[in-house]
Amino acid sequence: MTARVTELGLPDDIQACLFDLDGVITRTAVVHAAAWKQTFDEYLRQRDGTEFRPFDKGADYDSYVDGRPRADGVRTFLASRDIHLPEGDPGDPPDAETVHGLGNRKNELLLELIRTQGVEAYDGTLRYLDRVRAAGLRTAVVSSSANCRDVLRSIDAEHLFDVRIDGVVAAERGLPGKPRPDTFLAAAQDLDVQPKAAAVYEDALAGMDAGRSGHFGYVVGLDRVGQADALRAHGADVVVEDLTDLGRWA
């Protein structure tokens, strides 16, 4: 197995690969950013009127919401504007002025964008996954999205993963989301491997932080938006623009 693992651009003691979904497997990060922007801009415009300052799909998305569970993204971004809303309840309607209400509004918009625009996979990642499994490595998808399973089914990729730790599973198990490493650690445990024997694949800065703090054996940063330096600063061992650039397999 060692030679085949090395061809994949991994240390030869890696036994499992843990993949984020949005921005790593699928091109849904841009759809998420659009849904967040519409959600926050509508709320901020109503709240601030002429003083309205829009949500930035680049800087604000990368710094405050990318890779985080939905409610954490709401809290973190609003805190950056010195806004603190009541938590509310996970079942709050999407027009409720609560953390969960805004989060549910974002998810409503996201699902509509997915229905109208569809979901596109990164072909390089799917081909890399095929090689990873052919090399005998175990695989997991680790995502904060509660829609992870449906998205994987829409691109016919559910079968590529031995374990799925997503927003639904995290809520069931009480796992805090990224930048905490708990969801990745749960995936490694479910795969019966130690963190040092697992590689993490992420495109979000919060995911880099999770990989570093979880002491995983290798952390691969996917630079989809020109933030290679930031990914390295947050813990990436290597940064590539596509998984076809990793190793000598393509």
Rank of each mutant, 00 (worst) to 15 (best):
V5N: 10
A16F: 02
A16N: 02
I25K: 08
I25R: 09
I25D: 06
T26E: 00
T26V: 04
R27T: 14
R27G: 14
T28G: 03
V30Q: 09
V31F: 09
A35E: 02
K37G: 01
T39R: 11
T39Y: 12
F40N: 03
R45P: 14
G49Q: 06
T50F: 09
P54W: 12
D56W: 07
S63W: 11
G67T: 10
G67D: 06
R70F: 02
A71C: 04
A71T: 15
G73M: 02
G73K: 01
V74W: 01
R75E: 01
R75C: 00
L78K: 00
D82V: 05
G91W: 04
D92P: 00
P94C: 01
D95G: 06
T98G: 00
V99M: 02
G101A: 05
R105I: 11
R105T: 14
N107R: 14
I114H: 09
D123W: 08
T125W: 15
R127L: 11
R127N: 12
A134Q: 15
L137W: 01
T139W: 00
N147D: 09
N147Y: 11
D156S: 03
V168Y: 05
A171F: 07
E172T: 14
R173H: 10
G174Q: 05
L175P: 05
L175H: 01
P181G: 03
F184T: 02
A187T: 07
D190I: 13
D190L: 13
P195T: 05
K196Y: 12
A198W: 08
V200Y: 00
E202L: 08
A206T: 10
M208E: 07
S213H: 07
G214V: 04
G217K: 04
L222G: 09
L231G: 00
V238S: 12
V238I: 12
L243F: 14
D245T: 15
L246H: 04
G247V: 03
W249V: 02
